[in-house]
Design a protein around this nucleic acid. Structure first.
Lengths: 215, 215
DNA sequence: GACTCATGTTACCATTGGTCACATGCTCGC
DNA sequence: GCGAGCATGTGACCAATGGTAACATGAGTC
């Protein structure tokens, strides 16, 4: 981490914005909550806390920037993973939760802000919201393709999407909050999660189309 | 809310602890995050902020108390709902997410602390953790009964539980964080959630037992 | 080499969570 | 019925925090 800290001789940091985001994500991941201090972050970057306000309008804005980055990165990884899968719609669908969970392990700090942090309304989170919408659109599109190809049951796609997003996001959320041990005991939780998500998707695929029809 | 505020004449509030918890839950529900101030809470209860420390060791302890109360209340409601269902194992299982989601609508403030707030380690959250474990045990037991009765596929119960808890908790979490509109558009989100959870459970019930077997 | 703009610093502020010594009043043994 | 003791509330105080503003420094440009 001393890589972040500039030598005192230099006045300008060079990439303070990125450094602050990295440090914040490290701390969120380590402490399980965004309970760092701007002063603490700035100090580790070798800078006064007031300097942070040159790059982020507020502490909350730092978090929002992390969330936006996270959703964009996730979206990029999902798109790349789908490209590798070729044309098989089911493979392209299954790769989404896979990437989602892998990203959670790679960047738990960002993930926590993305899905366990209350985004207060207002301008601050607008960018993050846009990035999130993009990421969700990919899932919608992929599910639509699957339904048209007959590899997912007919019915209201919103229901299928909700179910899939629910399992994936739900297990991720449980894992992030350390609530997973309660239900699954010890052992390789991440493998269990991946396999459970996959099993659920298969269950949805083979399910009765009547289940997903609107009332 | 003036019910909370004692008349200035009286020195003792009478039930300050409960009043503070109620007020905190109101604010969390309204603001979507536990970003209230102890002073603000105390003022509305008609009391100095220092008085709160007679009832809670810290701000965090207040949140922990709310979480513990929430899990105990949830557990009580689940047990009561099951009792009403008689002996049918499947009905007793389905009533659990139903109660879970209904409680979320009744007490969104508590719910948010229960599942979207990082419980830092330590003594503070010990009570909440115990209450949570109790609540989860009920699900485990019910799923076990269903498997033995043949209304749920064979296989590692931990996987089935994870899947069920995943959808339920995941959709609840998405709803709480206002992320549900992104996938489902407008309309009665709560009905969609309930029905999606139910559909998922049915899909799991009718699924191939091989899906849930350990690798 | 002077102008300028981005970036960082110092000094400052109000607010917050938390503590402490003191005040008040309910309750229970006598 | 009354005094002691304990739970509960108060007021004054503290260090730390997020945030702001005026000033300093440096890099790039003409």
């Amino acid at each position: 981490m001393p890589a972040e800290r500039r030598k005192p001789a230099e006045y300008h940091h060079g990439s303070l914005r990125d450094a602050l985001m990295r440090l914040a994500m490290q701390r969120i991941a380590a402490r399980g909550a965004p309970d760092f201090t701007l002063r603490e972050l700035a100090a580790e970057a070798g800078v006064t806390h007031a300097a942070t306000y040159r790059h982020f309008a507020s502490r909350e804005a730092l978090l929002a920037a992390i969330a936006a980055w996270g959703y964009r990165e996730l979206h990029a990884r999902e798109a790349a993973a789908q490209a590798e899968q070729g044309a098989d719609p089911w493979a392209r669908l299954l790769v989404l939760p896979e990437t989602y969970l892998a990203f959670m392990l790679d960047a738990p700090g960002a993930f926590r802000i993305m899905l366990a942090h209350p985004w207060t309304d207002g301008e601050t989170w607008a960018d993050a919201r846009a990035a999130r919408a993009e990421s969700y659109a990919l899932l919608e599109e992929t599910v639509g393709t699957c339904q048209r190809a007959g590899v997912l049951p007919e019915g209201n796609p919103a229901r299928l999407i909700a179910a899939m997003l629910g399992v994936t996001h739900g297990l991720a959320s449980l894992w992030l909050n350390g609530q997973f041990g309660v239900v699954a005991g010890e052992g390789d939780a991440t493998a269990l999660i991946r396999e459970t998500v996959c099993a659920s998707f298969e269950a949805f695929r083979a399910s009765d189309p009547l289940l997903w029809r609107d009332a």
